[in-house]
Write a protein that binds this DNA or RNA. Structure first.
Length: 470
RNA sequence: GUGGCUAUAGUUCAAUGGUAGAACACUGGUUUGUGGUACCAGGUACGAGGGUCCGAUUCCCUCUAGCCACCCCA
């Protein structure tokens, strides 16, 4: 029986004990009690986690870098719902893909609608693009999103059921220069975070026309070697033959090594497109390799596909993000023909990587002034003083809930403030405060109206000493 | 979805077939309105369910969760 982890332990234990003491005679009764006291699971659902204050500096830095660069490249922020109708994804990502077949968070609403938590951004963006008639906007339309996405996967390092992505998509432009620019942007985001060891894997899977021709060739080839493939790949042969190229089984890799490659069977248009992309990339001085076996798990891609790999020393590599061109998706979903290109970055993995390389983080400015109070009257006065100081641009910390001056000063010290203002009964009565310089230890009495300037003066003098926060 | 390892205070770790300790952290105090250090005091834990046993946190089973590998991807 999958029972819950119970943390209301005292209660729960008593229930359990009285249950066993009462034996079978009171089974029904105990069951009822258990139901009433239905335990709260003091943990999130599997594969989901809290991002605690301690690691927010990494996330803040990440958000800043991503949205700043997005802005500089002309992207506009858009937020689409976390939940969409499930068939939006089955239609776009495609049946036969792992995402749709086994990783979708699908459920039925009270109203009977089949919906799903978004497994990625692109489909929702396309829906919004079509719905709001963005095709009338000057092209290209560049959209940027950041938020959680969901995959019902089995969790392990760097893989969560709820994870965050930053997503960049460009609609309405088919020129390969955009592909290059998108890849450049991805590169700049990652390197701006201080992550150095990355490599881009690039491939072209052609357009529907040449891919179908290629796929026929591939299937014919694979059929001839069918005995040598693993169980999974035998199935893939029916559902998603391209993925056989991606299989990590030794025998499949051997078969794949001699398989026809999509790059060799591109139609003229796709060939030219890929070639010019590579020419642009060569201009960019960016670490990429052509990986003819890179396929990607979403079936809407055409022509360019790419992934960003981080390689740490031990050769253990994992994907930080990926994307590609999807010239036919908008059309598939019912819009007008709109070439498009985009990519997503896995923020959880970027943060992990940032930690690994001890990347720069963004820390909110810390208060340099502490306001201590003593006694009822002083407490009343200091609440107002607190906001007065802040209105004048002085960040103030406090611990109003504490009584003794000693404990307040201890907190002040631990926060590393430079000035502590002390308001006691006496000061409260004559509208003054003791201004204590925490560095030198000296203190003086200052009237309320002179306080702001006096504090600013001390902070200014101390600036050189304490400017090492960021 | 498959396989392996793990599960003790907020955290990092101990010990034990007779219901558990430390460190750090937290709260308060060390005379009356002044910081670090030191000292004192205090609260908090055996993931859940079942079995073996006089007795289980300890042994066994199941579940759950976490980690790792596969798979897949971000």
């Amino acid at each position: 029986m999958p029972k819950k982890v119970e943390k209301a332990k005292g209660v729960a234990k008593k229930t359990a004990k009285s249950a066993s003491a009462g034996k079978s005679s009171s089974k029904k009764a105990t069951k009822k009690i258990e139901k009433v006291e239905e335990e709260i699971m003091l943990q999130p659902p599997r594969g989901m986690r809290d991002l605690l204050p301690g690691e927010q500096p990494y996330w803040a830095q990440l958000r800043r870098v991503a949205s700043k660069l997005g802005h500089e490249y002309g992207f506009q922020r858009i937020d689409t719902p976390v939940v969409e109708y499930a068939n939006l994804y089955t239609r776009s990502i495609g049946e036969g893909t792992d995402i749709v077949d086994k990783e979708m968070y699908t459920f039925t609403t009270r109203g009977g609608d089949k919906v799903a938590l978004r497994p990625e951004f692109t489909a929702g963006l396309c829906r919004a693009y079509i719905q709001h008639g963005m095709n009338v906007l000057p092209k290209p339309v560049k959209l940027f999103s950041i938020g959680p996405v969901y995959r019902y996967d089995r969790p392990q390092e760097g893989r969560y059921r709820e994870h965050w992505q930053a997503n960049f998509d460009i609609f309405g432009e088919q020129d390969a220069v955009l592909d290059a620019q998108v890849i450049q942007l991805a590169h700049r985001v990652v390197t701006s975070l201080g992550i150095k060891n990355v490599q881009f894997q690039i491939n072209s899977i052609g357009c529907p026309k040449c891919r179908n021709e290629y796929q026929d060739l591939l299937v014919a080839y694979l059929e001839s070697k069918k005995q040598k493939l693993c169980q999974n790949c035998k199935k893939r042969l029916e559902t998603n033959p391209l993925r056989v190229l991606d299989c990590k089984e030794d025998k499949c890799m051997q078969v794949a090594a001699n398989a026809p490659q999509s790059v060799d069977h591109l139609c003229n248009e796709c060939h030219v497109h890929f070639k010019s992309l590579l020419e642009y990339l060569d201009e960019l001085d960016l670490p990429y390799v052509i990986n003819p076996r890179l396929v990607r798990g979403l079936s809407y891609y055409s022509k360019t596909v790419f992934e960003i790999w981080s390689g740490d020393e031990e050769g253990k590599k994992h994907s930080l993000g990926g994307g590609g061109r999807y010239d036919y998706l908008v059309e598939t979903l019912g819009g007008e023909h709109t070439p498009a290109m985009g990519f997503g970055l896995g923020l959880d993995r970027l943060v992990a990587e940032m930690k690994r390389v001890k990347a720069k983080t963004y820390v909110e400015p810390k208060p340099k002034v502490f306001l201590a109070q003593l006694g009822d009257l002083a407490k009343k006065k200091s609440l107002k003083l607190f906001s007065e100081l802040q209105k004048n641009g002085i960040l103030v910390a406090e611990s109003f809930g504490r009584g003794s001056l000693k404990s307040q000063l201890r907190v002040a010290d631990r926060l590393g403030v430079e000035v502590t203002l002390i308001v006691g009964q006496k000061e409260a009565l004559d509208e003054t405060a003791i201004m204590k310089d925490m560095v030198s230890g000296t203190q003086e009495n200052v009237s309320h109206e002179k306080l702001v300037n006096a504090v600013k003066k001390i902070l200014k003098n101390n600036v050189v000493v304490s400017n090492n926060v960021l």
